[in-house]
């Protein structure tokens, strides 16, 4: 049985918000009986773009991670919801817009914060994977259709196939520790979840400071090398995909017959700025 999944490429999301706007267009003021009651005009983010700014000016980058109900297979909202929450055969989770009335308790059950409380209707609500459209023959979601970069793609495949893709293409899910078996997968999630140590190597000769290209840079943790790279033509180097809050590192730079060691403590991404050899 083929089931729906979402694959999101964090490296391609531009924060254009077309997916969020198309979700509002689809649900605000529109009742889809059996699927969802209208989304309030303001205050709900059924699709929500999270962002992460890394580093310090001018060595920075920014990643956007669209989030939504993950349509988990092992969903706490399902076990708590009773007959108010259903899992469809195609993997989609639906909070019944009639039976779930008054079930504010469900909001807390989602580890992703993606059940939205509709005060006016007294209803817990989620993004329904546009199930009402898929049931009418749509082959993709509105967000997928609107996405200009292909960063958001809905695909319908067998679970085995999805598992194989996730493995082969190093796809990840949000909060794997919650063990909810999400159906929303991320490519290049490290751009959002990991951090870097970087810097710019320069040297002075005859009173002129210049960038050092090709300096060897090593990253050490507890005296052991964990990564090595070279500076580019701007003297820049960057060690990426490090864990946030992973503590003390040593950066060792050698070039022009000189050596320099810099100690760094990693909480969030860190630009060491200019380093003079």
């Amino acid at each position: 049985m083929k089931k729906w999944n979402m694959i999101i490429d964090v490296a391609e999301c531009t924060n254009c918000q077309l997916c969020t706007l198309s979700a509002m267009d689809e649900y605000v003021g529109n009742d889809w009986p059996g699927y969802s009651a209208p989304m309030p005009r303001h205050g709900h983010h059924w699709i929500d773009i999270k962002q992460k700014e890394r580093g310090q000016a001018p060595m920075i980058d920014i990643a956007f991670a669209p989030t939504m109900c993950n349509h988990c297979d092992n969903a706490p909202c399902l076990s708590k919801g009773g007959d108010a929450v259903n899992k469809r055969e195609d993997g989609i989770v639906i909070i019944d817009p009639v039976k779930a009335k008054g079930r504010k308790d469900l909001v807390e059950s989602c580890p992703y914060g993606h059940i939205w409380w509709n005060e006016e209707l007294q209803l817990p609500q989620i993004w329904t994977f546009d199930a009402h459209l898929l049931d009418q023959g749509w082959d993709k979601t509105r967000g997928h259709q609107a996405c200009p970069t292909g960063a958001m793609r809905a695909i319908k495949v067998e679970d085995d196939e999805m598992a194989r893709m996730a493995r082969d293409e190093a796809l990840e899910v949000m909060k794997p520790e919650a063990a909810t078996k999400p159906r929303v997968y991320y490519r290049n999630l490290w751009r959002y979840s990991k951090c870097f140590i970087g810097g710019s190597v320069a040297t002075e000769a005859n009173g002129v400071v210049d960038c050092v290209e090709g300096a060897a840079v090593r990253l050490l943790k507890d005296g052991t090398q964990v990564a090595a790279t070279e500076t580019d033509n701007y003297g820049d180097f960057k060690f990426d995909r490090l864990d946030e809050g992973s503590g003390a590192y040593t950066v060792e730079i050698s070039g022009h017959g000189r050596k320099k060691t810099v100690e760094a403590k990693l909480g969030q991404s860190l630009s060491l700025g200019e380093i003079r050899l």
Binding site: V209, D210, C211, Y234, G235, E274
Partner: peptide, 12 residues
């Protein structure tokens, strides 16, 4: 903008 960076950009 550091002079060194402008020089490196000009050269590239």
């Amino acid at each position: 903008v550091p002079a060194k960076d402008v020089r490196a950009l000009a050269r590239e």
